[in-house]
Computed example of a mutant assay.
Amino acid sequence: MRSVGNAAIAGVTVVSLCTGLWLLGPGAARETPPQPSAAQAGTGTGTGPGARSGAAPALPPSPPDRIRVPGIRVDAPLMGLGLTPGGSLDVPPAADKNLAGWYEAGTTPGETGTAIVAGHVDNRQGPAVFYRLGALQRGSRIEVERRDGSVAEFTVDAVEVYDADAFPDDKVYGAADRPELRVITCGGGYSRDTGYQGNVVVFAHLTGSH
């Protein structure tokens, strides 16, 4: 099975990745995660200025094992994410703060299409793997270590934040005619009553491999 309803995936990334419970505890005020500025957003319906240039040839399918984002000090293993009994995308265990997941019924990072990686912004103890995702900038590098021994190198085209009720399913999850990557976590405003109110999404495309 290589497809799932966009709304189902979006619903999980909006809800299950967004706890914010550590912000509710007693003690000193806690800062919320950094959010992308307007300067890091894409333009029009594409994924960012120059997004169609510099693309590398697609790689053969291979499951990913690890993701590295040097610009925000991420170096984390990847686990496969399937579907819940309700038909939604599952998420990594929240207790492991340095773990991300990829949608294993979809495109593998590096092959033609849109690969999806998701991870928590925080857990009950504090910041988690993608806490600083909103601070990433266009042109930054993302590396995905694959099981066949290759490393897929992606360049960030845009970093955007969306309200939960305005999440652009087609833009984020839609098919692509080249190797692309989406990295998703929670973001936007934070309320003690409802938690995080949106999602940060990184758009990237394959620019090399080794």
Results as ranks from 00 to 15, higher is better:
residue 24 L to H: 14
residue 83 L to P: 01
residue 140 S to D: 13
residue 141 R to P: 10
residue 191 S to C: 08
residue 136 L to C: 02
residue 53 S to A: 12
residue 148 D to G: 01
residue 39 A to Y: 00
residue 138 R to T: 14
residue 71 G to Y: 00
residue 31 E to W: 05
residue 127 P to E: 00
residue 145 E to G: 14
residue 61 P to S: 15
residue 136 L to M: 13
residue 118 A to K: 11
residue 4 V to H: 08
residue 203 F to E: 05
residue 76 A to S: 12
residue 112 T to R: 11
residue 90 D to P: 10
residue 118 A to I: 14
residue 26 P to A: 13
residue 30 R to V: 10
residue 37 S to N: 00
residue 105 A to P: 04
residue 126 G to M: 05
residue 191 S to N: 09
residue 49 P to W: 02
residue 26 P to H: 07
residue 119 G to K: 06
residue 102 W to F: 15
residue 153 E to I: 14
residue 113 G to L: 12
residue 4 V to G: 11
residue 204 A to F: 10
residue 86 G to T: 11
residue 51 A to Q: 09
residue 169 D to S: 15
residue 42 G to M: 08
residue 146 R to F: 04
residue 194 T to G: 03
residue 8 A to F: 06
residue 15 V to Y: 07
residue 22 W to C: 12
residue 208 G to Y: 04
residue 201 V to C: 02
residue 67 I to A: 04
residue 3 S to Q: 11
residue 122 D to Q: 08
residue 63 P to M: 07
residue 62 S to C: 05
residue 91 V to N: 05
residue 52 R to L: 10
residue 40 Q to D: 11
residue 82 G to R: 12
residue 120 H to T: 07
residue 9 I to L: 13
residue 197 Q to P: 08
residue 84 T to C: 07
residue 176 A to D: 02
residue 74 V to G: 00
residue 99 L to C: 10
residue 42 G to K: 12
residue 34 P to A: 06
residue 75 D to Q: 04
residue 46 G to Y: 03
residue 52 R to A: 12
residue 177 D to Q: 13
residue 176 A to S: 14
residue 35 Q to H: 04
residue 78 L to D: 01
residue 195 G to K: 10
residue 92 P to Q: 13
residue 112 T to D: 00
residue 193 D to H: 08
residue 88 S to R: 15
residue 166 A to E: 13
residue 197 Q to W: 09
residue 58 A to T: 08
residue 12 V to W: 11
residue 71 G to Q: 06
residue 105 A to G: 12
residue 67 I to S: 02
residue 177 D to P: 07
residue 111 E to P: 10
residue 208 G to D: 05
residue 201 V to K: 06
residue 18 C to I: 07
residue 31 E to S: 15
residue 48 G to K: 06
residue 208 G to H: 06
residue 209 S to D: 06
residue 90 D to Q: 15
residue 103 Y to K: 12
residue 74 V to S: 00
residue 132 R to W: 06
residue 151 V to Y: 03
residue 57 P to V: 01
residue 124 R to H: 01
residue 107 T to V: 15
residue 197 Q to F: 10
residue 78 L to H: 01
residue 91 V to W: 01
residue 101 G to L: 03
residue 70 P to F: 09
residue 143 E to L: 14
residue 94 A to V: 15
residue 175 A to H: 12
residue 48 G to P: 03
residue 176 A to C: 11
residue 102 W to C: 14
residue 100 A to W: 08
residue 130 F to P: 06
residue 85 P to S: 07
residue 106 G to L: 08
residue 28 A to P: 14
residue 35 Q to E: 09
residue 31 E to G: 10
residue 34 P to L: 07
residue 148 D to E: 02
residue 6 N to L: 11
residue 84 T to N: 07
residue 67 I to Q: 01
residue 23 L to N: 09
residue 126 G to I: 01
residue 207 T to H: 11
residue 195 G to H: 09
residue 113 G to T: 14
residue 136 L to W: 06
residue 117 V to H: 05
residue 11 G to P: 05
residue 70 P to H: 05
residue 59 L to K: 09
residue 152 A to Q: 07
residue 76 A to E: 00
residue 132 R to M: 01
residue 201 V to Y: 02
residue 156 V to K: 11
residue 198 G to D: 02
residue 16 S to C: 10
residue 168 P to D: 03
residue 178 R to I: 09
residue 176 A to K: 15
residue 13 T to C: 13
residue 25 G to S: 10
residue 44 G to Y: 03
residue 134 G to F: 03
residue 170 D to T: 14
residue 146 R to C: 08
residue 70 P to Y: 06
residue 99 L to M: 13
residue 188 G to A: 09
residue 135 A to C: 00
residue 123 N to I: 02
residue 209 S to A: 12
residue 38 A to T: 05
residue 192 R to V: 13
